[in-house]
Design a protein around this nucleic acid. Structure first.
Lengths: 226, 226
DNA sequence: AGAATAGTGTCTCTCAGACATTATTTG
DNA sequence: CAAATAATGTCTGAGAGACACTATTCT
């Protein structure tokens, strides 16, 4: 039981893959991108995945995986969790390093017809343990939205305050007060107005804003303890 | 480029291990447990690690790894990040699933003489990319302390308010106001007084408290955005 | 008595949250 | 002018943060 010290040389061999849980706002809802799980007898879906290639890092592998669907480079990609229970795949042990990605609603262009979007709160039957993965990814996304600027990754470069508010409402699944929302988001100083306005087909034109990544918004939320 | 849909059967083979970044409070400082890295020509240290065994889950493997040092079962263990850059280990590609653990200062009993504690802000030379790992683990620990009850995992079953406050101060590296600290921690309702008092060698005896895991403290911190 | 640590209350100021009306455009 | 959406300010209550003295024990 003394076991190995330091780097355990000659480690175990394991099947390893990356999976990417891709979120976007579509049709006024938060949706997730899924593919048909190949080996399933029953129709079941899975987040896009691929093997880890020998020369790429994990994040690069996930990024390649994403590029099957995304035309534009700007993409939020973050590691979520690594799943590796021996029994999670009946065909043998697979370790899945899972990422989650946020893409603006105008950046999707799929040359891959088999993939489809599903609302996160009405997912289809998912293969293996992917349902738990998805639920965890949604929880993390909602959480991140509250203390980071992740929300902007779901919007195009320029947007109106109403669009930004709808983004928050769709992800969080709750209604927000318009005046309070504007006050807080403007006070935070993380967006700036652009010279132009949106000329809408309906109603009064809205001021367009742009996210300021430089205003790092490293502001910290209030502590719970102590 | 159509690539594989669903589960990528017949995945790549990769060396995979778990590592555990173990924190504890010792000598009035936050310290981390390290072992000599075996294969290193220069003396270098590494967080305890082991291969992933075929029958255990990742978390179980990490837990076994921990049990080399800990006598008591109560241990906070959480997955931190998975490192897998192709170049991180010159001896070949290794994927490290890293956990971090918190242990109370009275729960350490090492039968493993090679391991040593180091203050987190004065670490020794570390092998491979372990320095970055450690820095990230410290950041995450500080962050968790602020919005969860993780701090109690560093204390024994019963403790005084002064000890609890020192715990927070040691981890966060900043001074906290005594009255405000007590007010907030008591209002939160997550600790309760025990019948007994601590009879100190010096000064007035202090009331002992116990953590109430049932008071889930699922209270959320204030949102930053919006 | 002196040293050491435990324990306690108030005030101020910021900010979250609730809430309704006016302004600008298009057809 | 009707419909649609954009934009704007105030009040109230809760809580974070600053701050200093008394109480109990031991030697």
């Amino acid at each position: 039981m003394a076991a190995q010290h330091g780097s355990p040389a000659g480690s175990a061999e394991c099947a390893i893959e990356v999976r990417v849980v891709v979120f976007s706002l579509r049709e006024q809802r938060l949706q997730v991108l899924l593919e048909p799980a190949s080996a399933a007898p029953d129709p079941a879906w899975a987040p896009p995945g691929s093997r880890v290639t020998p020369v790429l890092s994990l994040e690069e592998s996930a990024s390649v995986c994403l590029s099957r669907f995304i035309c534009r480079p700007r993409t939020f990609l973050e590691q979520l969790y690594t799943y590796g229970d021996p029994e999670r795949d009946p065909h043998g042990r697979v370790i899945s390093v899972v990422y989650f990605a946020l893409i603006p609603f105008d950046a999707f262009c799929s040359p891959d017809a088999a993939a489809r979007w599903f609302p996160v709160d009405e997912p289809p039957a998912l293969a293996l343990d992917y349902a738990g993965m998805l639920a965890y990814a949604v929880r993390r996304l909602r959480y991140k939205l509250e203390y980071s600027a992740a929300g902007f990754e779901l919007l195009p470069e320029v947007f109106t305050l109403s669009e930004l508010q709808r983004t928050y409402e769709m992800v969080l699944g709750e209604h927000l007060d318009k005046r309070n929302f504007r006050r807080r988001i403007l006070q935070a100083g993380i967006i700036e107005p652009t010279p132009s306005q949106r000329r809408a087909a309906e109603g009064r034109p809205a001021q367009l804003y742009r996210y300021r990544p430089d205003a790092v918004a490293e502001v910290k939320a209030r502590r719970l303890f102590p």
